[in-house]
Amino acid sequence: MTFLDMAGGLNSLMIVASLYGIWAQLRTVLQRRARGETATDLLSLNQFSVSYFAYWSFFLYGLSVTPINHYLVWPRLAAALLVLGILLQMARERGRAAKGVCTLALLSLGLGLAVATLGPQLQDSGRWLATVLILGISLMLAQGYGHQILLMWREKRTGAINIRMSQWILAMDLSTLLLVTAMGWQSGWPLAVLAITSALTKVILLGLYRYLATDESTGRSGSQADEAHP
Rank of each mutant, 00 (worst) to 15 (best):
L4K: 12
L4S: 04
A7M: 04
A7D: 02
G8D: 01
S12H: 07
L13Y: 11
I15F: 06
Y20M: 09
I22T: 08
A24D: 14
L30Q: 15
Q31E: 15
R35T: 01
E37T: 02
D41Y: 15
Q47S: 13
S49N: 13
Y52E: 06
Y52S: 06
F53S: 00
W56P: 00
W56E: 09
S57Q: 10
F58N: 05
F58A: 11
L60R: 10
S64R: 04
S64H: 08
V65F: 02
V65G: 02
T66D: 11
I68F: 03
N69I: 01
L72H: 04
V73E: 02
V73T: 12
W74N: 05
P75F: 06
A78Q: 08
L81E: 07
L81K: 08
L81C: 03
I86T: 08
I86Q: 06
L88W: 00
M90H: 03
A91D: 01
R92I: 05
R92Y: 03
E93W: 06
R94H: 11
R94K: 11
A98K: 01
K99I: 09
G100K: 05
G100T: 05
C102L: 07
L104S: 08
L104A: 10
L106C: 05
G110L: 15
V115T: 06
G119W: 03
Q123G: 05
G126D: 03
R127L: 14
W128K: 10
L129P: 00
V132T: 07
V132H: 12
L133F: 12
I137N: 03
S138H: 06
L139Q: 05
G144H: 06
G146L: 12
Q148H: 11
R154D: 11
K156P: 00
G159C: 06
I161E: 01
I163N: 08
I169K: 02
A171H: 06
M172H: 07
T176E: 07
T176G: 02
L177N: 04
L177M: 15
V180I: 09
Q186D: 11
S187E: 14
G188V: 04
G188A: 10
P190M: 09
L191Q: 10
A192E: 07
V193Q: 04
A195V: 08
S198Q: 13
K202G: 00
Y209R: 09
A213Q: 11
T214A: 13
T214W: 09
E216S: 08
S217T: 09
G222E: 08
S223Y: 10
Q224C: 04
D226M: 14
A228E: 12
